[in-house]
Amino acid sequence: MAGLRTAALAEFVGTAALLCAVIGSGIMGERLAGGNVAVALLANTLATVFALYVLIETLGPVSGAHFNPVVTLVLALRGQSGHERPHIWVTVFVLAQLAGAVAGAWLAHLMFELPVLQASTKMRTGWGQWTAEVVATAGLLFVILKAPAGRAGALVACYIGAAYWFTASTSFANPAAVTGRMLSDTFSGIAPADAPAFFVAQLAGGIIGATIACVLNSGPENKTSSRSAPID
Rank of each mutant, 00 (worst) to 15 (best):
S25G: 01
F187W: 14
L75N: 12
W127Q: 12
A210K: 09
G153M: 15
Y164D: 12
L183E: 09
G34S: 07
S25M: 06
L110R: 14
A51T: 14
T186S: 10
L114A: 01
F50E: 05
I23L: 04
L140P: 08
A51W: 01
A96P: 15
S25H: 00
M123R: 14
T91W: 07
E221H: 14
L19V: 03
A163N: 10
A33R: 11
V156Y: 09
S171M: 12
I160G: 07
A33E: 13
Y159Q: 02
L145V: 03
P175H: 08
N68G: 01
A204G: 14
A76F: 00
V135I: 13
L52E: 05
A40Q: 02
V62H: 02
E57V: 04
M28R: 12
F166L: 13
R181G: 09
S218I: 08
I23C: 09
A163Q: 05
P192N: 07
F67L: 11
A229R: 12
T170A: 10
A173V: 15
I56Q: 12
T170V: 11
G82H: 15
T131W: 01
W106D: 13
S225C: 10
F50D: 04
S188Q: 06
R85W: 00
T179F: 01
V200K: 09
L59K: 12
G150D: 08
L203K: 05
P175C: 04
L42F: 11
L41K: 15
G35R: 02
C20Y: 15
H87E: 02
G189Q: 05
A163M: 05
A204I: 13
A38R: 13
L32Y: 13
N217V: 04
G205V: 02
S25V: 09
A162M: 07
T211K: 09
A154Y: 10
I27N: 15
F199Y: 07
V156L: 11
P196L: 10
A119M: 06
Q97R: 08
T121Q: 05
S25T: 09
E133P: 06
F142W: 11
A40I: 00
G29M: 03
G150S: 04
I27P: 08
F172H: 04
V116L: 10
G219E: 00
D194N: 12
V102E: 00
T58V: 09
A105M: 11
A21E: 14
G104S: 10
L75A: 09
A152G: 06
M28K: 15
W130P: 09
L110C: 12
